[in-house]
Amino acid sequence: MQISMTVNGDEITREAEPRVLLVHFIREILGLTGTHWGCDTSNCGTCVVLMDGLPVKSCTVLAAMADGHDIRTVEGLATGGVLDPVQQGFMEEHGLQCGFCTPGMMLTARALLDRNPHPDDDQIREAISGQICRCTGYATIVRSVQWAAEHPAGAAATGEEVNA
């Protein structure tokens, strides 16, 4: 079947079987491998993308169900070569070790900050509670999201040059 959606601002149409999961549509058909594919059982959350602005586990959404919807992946976080404050925060506060959970963590963080620009640590922990960091680096992930909350304009606000 033909499936059309907006991905990171681009309208795309591709042919795919109805049984193709959104995570595989994004990775294999669109070639956007920033979205990671992990447990397959909607537990780990590394496959999180934003669907109409809300985090969803793309291993448990059919590409067909996303037809007509707006999808944002980790590739859509930076704009014009400038990192999103969340990405910058993960750099500043060492929010990633192996990096496997990072795309999903960053998208959930982006959606949280869009709704609640000043979350406390508990609210951040609750927001990412459906996502697993295999390095158990949760403390630095929370600090990274707090960095982004404190720097809504990202690196521009720090006055430092960013090597994006």
Binding site: S42, G45, L54, V56, K57, T60, E126, A127, S129, G130
Partner: peptide, 9 residues
Amino acid sequence: IADPVVRNR
């Protein structure tokens, strides 16, 4: 119930 991301769906 589940987790916040699952609850979105």
